[in-house]
Simulated assay, not measured.
Amino acid sequence: MTAAVVVLSCGVLTGCGGRSSAEPPSSPVSLLPSASASRSSSSAATGGPVAVLPATGATPAAWSRVDRQASSVAPHVAVVAAKMTASGQLQIVHQSGPTDARPLASMVKLYVLIAVAQAVQSGTLRWDQRLTLQSTDKAAGSGALIGAASGSTVTVQQAATLMIQISDNTATDLLIRAVGQSALAKAVASTGSSNAAKLVPFTTIRQDIWLEWSTSAAAVQARARWAGASTQTRMSLMAPATAPGSPVPDATGAGTTARWQDGLGYFASALDIAKAQVVLARLVRQKGLEPLQSILDVTRTGITTPTSWRQVSFKGGTVMGVQTGSWYARTTSGDEVLVVMASSPGGVNTASFNALASKAAAALAG
């Protein structure tokens, strides 16, 4: 059975990547073994957790203007702008807004890509290895792979490209199943995240949509018990989302409640995401991981990028009341990282968010 990959428009549940790029999958083969085991430590694969140097000196006028504009975009806007030092440290240029873990939406897919790259590096996955799509991998929202027939296959590289370039939710879930929970936990830890516990268990997009939006009795019970539940209990509570024959959950009838306000969904701080972008930039330079660069090179980043940004890796996200974006730029004078995360129960205007991120990018580039 062969299924073509058709590019669809991005949905409201997760963020858009940029250009669409994927070859159609070919004949199905059996699902590959889990890549949760690793023959090398995650810290060795990335050079250790990212070291951060705090900002120094007074706040320049350009950043004061960014902060004033941020207050008009949403009540909660976190900004981290930084430059990479010659020794590989993350030098903060400007940081403002909340420093705690905030809702990520599709920026969480950066961690999935790190886990995939580390699995390829350790030899438990290959870029050309084929993964077989199961019906319970299918997740609503943005992406194209949901339209492929169960039993179709894509390579690891194709799935990763779909996940980043068009924020494909089904491709993401296929990769999460391929690498496994242990590898995902190692990937998050390898970045030096200060909020790693908030991504345990690392739910699939399908599970997350079901947990946040389903009106079924099981989902209502799961939401009520989630906060105090152990990891094992949480996995059990989510079982109906991927039970054989279960329908693809969506937001139909979910109303207007932003569930992240109740602690549901994916969370990390803006600085955590900046570290994740740095780890990916390190991995790109590793032997055998060269495909990462084409996966990360997104031509539509949502903002006006500075002319000095020669090559840009981007991942953003959108969910009800949340808009996020992260950019890693290579320039002639060194690499730069920008993360902007906005959240408001009443919603975030995308155009206003992009205008703010554009101004922050200009301030960072100088």
Score class of each variant (00 low, 15 high):
101 A>D: 06
102 R>P: 00
103 P>S: 01
106 S>C: 06
106 S>K: 04
107 M>E: 12
107 M>Y: 08
109 K>V: 02
110 L>H: 11
112 V>N: 12
114 I>M: 14
114 I>P: 02
114 I>W: 06
114 I>G: 06
114 I>S: 08
115 A>R: 03
118 Q>V: 12
119 A>E: 07
120 V>H: 13
120 V>Y: 10
121 Q>L: 14
121 Q>P: 10
124 T>I: 06
124 T>L: 09
124 T>Y: 10
129 Q>G: 11
130 R>T: 15
130 R>W: 13
131 L>T: 05
131 L>C: 10
131 L>M: 10
133 L>H: 10
133 L>F: 14
133 L>W: 13
133 L>G: 12
134 Q>A: 13
135 S>G: 09
136 T>I: 11
139 A>G: 12
140 A>L: 09
141 G>Q: 11
142 S>L: 08
142 S>F: 11
144 A>Y: 13
144 A>V: 06
145 L>P: 05
146 I>V: 15
146 I>D: 15
146 I>S: 15
147 G>D: 12
148 A>T: 13
149 A>K: 14
150 S>W: 07
151 G>F: 15
152 S>K: 05
154 V>Q: 13
155 T>S: 12
156 V>K: 03
156 V>L: 11
157 Q>R: 13
157 Q>K: 11
159 A>V: 07
160 A>E: 10
161 T>M: 10
161 T>L: 08
162 L>N: 09
168 D>L: 01
168 D>E: 01
169 N>K: 02
172 T>G: 11
173 D>L: 07
174 L>F: 07
175 L>W: 03
176 I>F: 04
177 R>M: 04
179 V>S: 06
179 V>W: 09
181 Q>G: 04
182 S>P: 00
184 L>I: 04
185 A>D: 11
185 A>V: 12
186 K>D: 13
186 K>M: 08
187 A>S: 04
188 V>P: 01
190 S>D: 00
191 T>S: 04
191 T>Q: 00
192 G>D: 00
193 S>L: 03
194 S>M: 11
195 N>L: 01
195 N>K: 01
198 K>N: 05
201 P>E: 05
205 I>Q: 05
205 I>E: 08
205 I>A: 09
